[in-house]
Design a protein around this nucleic acid. Structure first.
Lengths: 182, 182
DNA sequence: AACGATACGGAATCACGAACCCGTTTGTGG
DNA sequence: CCACAAACGGGTTCGTGATTCCGTATCGTT
């Protein structure tokens, strides 16, 4: 691959990462091209459609997040790791409209990330959930689907947090719903 | 007003109610016109823009919901009324993409309902919350903003409920986060 | 340094959906 | 029953944004 092509591809990905993070999946392709310092045609030489570019960006962000999840799982006690990841994921999603959308639509219909990433996501969160449950930190009737749904709910709550300067408070309240009663 | 005009206006409102409920604010105006058995021009003679029609529909649905809230507040104990309304609102939102959007965007930026409706909404939910708090059924640190955010979160959770045939379960879990600890 | 092969920019094209217009139809007061 | 204002429908216009095209510029190889 020619050097300039590689450079432009990287620039487009970086710009798309920024723009989609700010504006979500409906960002305009021209905005991305402009921010990358490139013409629209160049974007299309590297990605077949805007959708493909978007999916690529989301998949990358998700993979980054899962890397961090793996690190947490390795370093901390199961319960701790699970809830730490929860907070991390919500925090990240709140700063990134693309990721936010990905959680909200979750195993949804549009903007599907590659199966490979989806599978890793399920495996990782599933593993942490299972471990936390085994450690008695999470109610035994909580399924992986419950966790996905409530994670999305946490993101919603946190994004709606109006005039509250205590980030993580609502997320914590929702996450606490997973813990066993007294 | 001519009789046919009144009839068509009602038809358009009914059709818009259905279509927006199914498809949310991005439904196509022609779909609505078609479902109402009317031309696009007729829709525009009664409502200046698609947005105005949408707002009208949402405001009506919200007002209906608030009527039911008032009834609950009158008939039941404060705590009971508050949580019953919570479940009702989530249930209604899940069946209605327009209402769902309205809760999600809440005191948001787009599709603003008339101040009159917004105010009534704040007053009603605020009153029920206050009463529930006074009855000791809701933690004293929960603000109205918290309630809005967590209500939106409940809707998200419930909509994501995948392969779980127990409607209201996740909503209940989120709502329980409002209750005082033991 | 010269020559393909690649890649580039951005103007032109296409698609879609909101909003407008106007010739035709319909309701209704006299 | 009539005349005419009000209302109708749907074809037309307009704007927006994704995608394509192609003449030009650049890279890397001989």
């Amino acid at each position: 691959m020619r050097a300039d092509a590689a450079r432009n591809r990287a620039r487009v990905l970086a710009a798309a990462g920024d723009v989609f993070a700010e504006q979500g999946p409906n960002a305009q392709l021209l905005d991305i091209a402009r921010r990358a310092g490139v013409g629209a045609g160049t974007v299309y030489r590297h990605f077949p459609t805007k959708e493909a570019l978007y999916v690529q960006v989301v998949a990358t962000r998700l993979a980054d997040l899962l890397d961090r999840a793996d690190a947490l799982a390795a370093e901390r006690e199961p319960a701790d790791a699970f809830f730490a990841f929860w907070g991390l994921a919500v925090d990240e999603a709140c700063r990134n409209a693309a990721l936010c959308e990905a959680f909200a639509s979750a195993t949804g219909e549009e903007h599907r990330v590659p199966d490979e990433v989806e599978t890793r996501y399920r495996r990782t969160l599933g593993g942490m959930l299972e471990a936390a449950r085994a450690a008695g930190a999470v109610r035994s009737d909580i399924t992986l689907a419950d966790a996905f749904a409530l994670l999305a709910a946490s993101v919603t709550a946190e994004m709606r947090r109006a005039g509250d300067d205590r980030p993580g408070r609502l997320t914590g309240m929702v996450a606490d719903a997973l813990r066993p009663g007294v």
